[in-house]
């Protein structure tokens, strides 16, 4: 085995190790583990807007998952239906890959 083959094999091996790790992200489960579902229902308005409404708004404003990640990590004040404001919960992961998976899952509702 020459050095080039070794490098390519290592790279493929690395991909094989990291790809399943990414693929194993269960975005819906992480969304619920973080209790996001308590405020955001797929279709109904709860304390927060439904996922369908969020997705439609992002589509309309041509926003992507990066904006959604900002929203779930910044802990900014959000205005509720009754006019009161409170801090938005921050997702309990700093892993950008996981945050991206959750954001994409939300915006595809």
């Amino acid at each position: 085995m020459n050095i080039r083959t070794l490098i390519v094999s290592a790279a493929i091996g690395g991909l094989c190790l990291s790809a399943p790790a990414f693929a194993q992200v269960d975005a819906e489960e992480i969304f619920k583990e973080n209790d996001c579902h308590k405020c955001h229902h797929p279709t109904k308005a709860k304390k927060g807007p439904s996922l369908a409404k969020i997705a439609a708004k992002y589509k309309e404003k041509k926003l992507d998952e990066k904006e959604a990640i900002k929203h779930m990590t910044a802990g900014k004040k959000v205005e509720l239906d009754d006019g009161t404001k409170e801090d938005h919960k921050i997702i309990d992961t700093k892993d950008v890959a996981v945050q991206t998976a959750v954001a994409k899952w939300m915006l595809n509702r």
């Binding site: 619920k32 583990e33 579902h37 308590k38 405020c39 229902h41 709860k46 304390k47």
Partner: peptide, 11 residues
């Protein structure tokens, strides 16, 4: 009204 997921109790 918040805890309405089918797996809520499990989680």
């Amino acid at each position: 009204s918040c805890h309405d997921d089918p797996k809520e109790e499990q989680r």
